[in-house]
Amino acid sequence: MTAITTAYPATWRRPPFIADGRLRWALIAGAVAYFVLAIGGLEINWVRIGEGLERGWRFVAAFARPDFLSRWDDIALGMQESLTMALTSTAVGILLSVPIGIGAARNLVPRPVYLVCRAIVAGARSFQEIIIAIFFVAMVGFGPFAGFLTLSLSTIGFLGKLLAEDIEDIDEAQAEAIRATGGSWLQLVNYGIQPQVMPRLIGLSLYRLDINFRESAVVGIVGAGGIGATLNTALDRYEFDSAAAILLLIIAIVMLCEYGSSLVRRRIQ
């Protein structure tokens, strides 16, 4: 063997993401300039912040002595409404999002069905819960029914989209095998698809249940009933100790949901 000597370089650098050096530095400079200008554009009123800090401190201090008792009837009613709203809207949301989610899976349905179901999902997802809640309050009046409608709609958007994506990601071979036996479309869904997506669907549904409970507290602020309405009233009256009690209860229930759903999810995997 004759040794052929070639001089190889001893250093190597990863090629930059933006190859053009000038463009790269221009983008960085632009981002920095924008950030500086944006900070400068904030109008900060230090007097108001000073006043607000004091109120804020009273609010924080109220957590040390939350008052569950003086407004207990209102709190209990609000909690009951919120829990009802969360459970019913999750149940209705799941029932409606399963057919819509199946319809929005490209690999399972004809194109027109796919487009219609995708449009429903996109529509349900396009607005934040508060905006939908304001709309439903205007439509059906104040109270938990508006909240129920809001949360059902956003559950459809959430579960429908994630279920459709899960179905599009399945192992096609398993579905193909069911098709090859001469099974019908419904049998294909039941044997070829459902076993593959079920654990994730259950997990997502439980997750959505605790989202819906948390959201039920938010939509109440715009008049859609539930614990949010009670919280809003307490804050309007500067009853920070009652408000603290409500917030502590919300935290406790959310943590309970979280713990419960992670327990179930671990079992079904």
Binding site: Q174, I178, Q196, M198
Partner: peptide
Amino acid sequence: FQEFALVER
């Protein structure tokens, strides 16, 4: 099938 294509679950 090649990779068996059983419904795993």
